[in-house]
Amino acid sequence: MAERAPEELVRLDGLVVAGRGHRALDGVSATLPRRRIAILGPNGAGKSVLLRVMHGLLAPTAGRVAWHAVAGRAPRIAMVFQRPVLLRRSVEDNVVYGLASSAAHRGLSAAQRRARAVAALERVGLAHLASRSGRVLSGGEQQRVALARAWALEPDVLLLDEPTASLDPGATRAIEAVIHEIAASGVAVVLVTHHRGLARRFAEQVVFLHEGRIAEQATVTDFFARPRSAAAHAYLEGDLA
């Protein structure tokens, strides 16, 4: 864990994920700043694969991920997936489960875990559903429970993989509001999305992936106003889906 300038979040060095004659990531190298980051790109560009590699869920074929230390320790990283996976138990118990599984929260008593879970649910506006079974909620509510579960872990970094995919506009707005709050609380958020409006409203930095490589990295304003790469230009024009 290298100590570097505090504005640096993570360094990606030559990441390759290859298999069966295909390279999902083909030499991704970048230094991401501690800002709100959106990873954009067409289908199959490697966005979700990159997020999984950054989280350690997927081992790269080559290359490494070096996170910037937080207060002298490895950063706590949480991830929320496109399709939230809630356990067959109450909403509150789902959040408690996350805390009980977290090595960083082993010292908490059962009562403390429960109190934190309730607080996290309040922050995402779902405290009134705490005793309901998680799996009978709507897709948007389930995603907010997943966000509450991740937020309760007090992560330094939150990785979001298409958190608003397949949700209606109302649910998307609710999720977006929660993501803004999480980022405002000091958590570094890396967001993979197809939702350009969300990326434009939320992100400060954009990383644009194309065919497993970073085609462009820019501020959100520059990316949407003046894309430099032909691929990003085609993507924004709707010629690259």
Binding site: L57, A78, M79, F81, V85, S101, S102, A103, R149, L153
Partner: peptide
Amino acid sequence: EYEEQLRSLG
């Protein structure tokens, strides 16, 4: 269904 989520939670 659960693997990535559970591994993500440690």
